[in-house]
Simulated scan of single mutants.
Amino acid sequence: MAPRLSGFTRASSLGPISEFMDRHGGSFTRALRNVDLPFAILEQPDIVIPLREQFRLLEKAARETGDPYFGARLGQAVKGRELSSFGAWVCSADKLDGAIRRAHAGLNTMLQTSTVLTFTRRGSKVRWSIEFVEPETEGRHHNEFLGVSYMIDMIRGYAGRTWRPDVVMSVLPAGSPRQALEEIFGTNVLHGCGVPAIEFDASLLGRLSCEASASSVDGYLEPRVPRQSDVVATIKSVTELALHEGYPHIKWVASKLGTTGRSLQRWLDMHGTSFNRVVDGVMETQAKDLLRQSEISVTQIALRLGYSDPAHFTRAFRRWTGMTPSAYRSEQR
């Protein structure tokens, strides 16, 4: 049976979390350390991280700030257009119904897997829901409120910045306190629902964009988010994440996928490869990119990739390509 691995999301889906925590008395750096994620996600929002790790990070951030509704409050600062190229593409649709169709079509390939958007229309009302198909529970409700907030912000690009849904539907237990959440969202909150959702008037679907920059989209498109069914691509993505902190180790990669090193290696064996080969491929790709696209020295590249000295890096690079790093750089230029 195929393994059930974590879904992925881009670091951009966390919105302005670092600045937000600074303003609310918390340390994002400390929260990152607590979940053992690389600091690179602060500077490279296109990085993909396991969705389960984002849940955990939001939970740590909530504890840092002492805010039980951290995800909902952070959600008031997010902008759908800043959700990588995906958000810009969605928000550039002429009408709201087109933006919603784009969100459904591109979410799982451009931004985030393990996530299901559902749209239903009942008479004059529309219900738009978001469900995270992840076994991880710690921090889940923070991510759910954050996801709902992105949906609300996207609609505001067509309905106006002061718009609010008729109701925000929550999966928190029925009878949970509502006042704080209703103050945050500025509308009614209904607990005890099957999935997080918002309801609004169907007449908004035909609204034209009210944002002047809606027609402009950055032409850059990120690589696709790895499919959960692709075991090798999933493991490779977490290995790339590990590389931001030095040489990747199987125990760390396995822990981020919610499994053990032995199970991870067994899955790779079933696909005709090994963890060492995955690391080799990731290191080679990163080394070539750095040599082509940057001016940093070979020694700096070696250290960034986790090698103890340039000689070890040069030997590895010669094994990959048949030439030295300096020769490769000269040839590419």
Rank of each mutant, 00 (worst) to 15 (best):
R127L: 13
G66M: 01
T239Q: 14
L37C: 03
G261C: 11
L42H: 09
F28S: 13
T324Y: 02
V225E: 15
G194W: 01
R266T: 08
Q300T: 05
E131W: 02
G71F: 07
G281P: 09
E138I: 15
D97Q: 09
S294P: 10
R122T: 09
Q228D: 09
Q300H: 10
G175W: 00
K79C: 15
C193S: 13
L32F: 08
E138N: 12
A61T: 07
G106L: 15
G258T: 00
I250T: 09
S330Y: 01
Q293D: 11
P223I: 01
V167P: 03
S326C: 03
L83S: 06
R10H: 12
Q293C: 14
R227W: 02
Q112G: 01
G139W: 07
S149T: 08
G322E: 02
F8L: 10
T260A: 01
I235N: 08
L57F: 08
P135A: 09
L14Y: 06
S330P: 07
F317H: 12
F70Y: 13
A302H: 01
L204T: 00
P135N: 04
T285Y: 03
Q300M: 12
H141V: 15
L290F: 14
A88R: 14
P3V: 08
E199M: 06
G87Q: 03
L204V: 00
Q44I: 15
R127G: 02
S203K: 07
S129P: 05
A174N: 03
L42A: 12
S129F: 02
L181P: 11
V217D: 04
I47E: 03
A61K: 01
S149L: 04
T109A: 13
L190Y: 01
Y307P: 06
E134R: 02
P16A: 04
E295I: 07
L221R: 05
S6A: 15
G123E: 08
Q265S: 15
L96E: 01
T299H: 13
L5A: 14
R23T: 12
A197K: 02
G175V: 05
L117S: 04
G71H: 09
F20V: 02
R262G: 13
L42P: 11
W163E: 07
G219D: 11
V48T: 14
R292H: 12
Q228G: 12
E131P: 01
M110N: 11
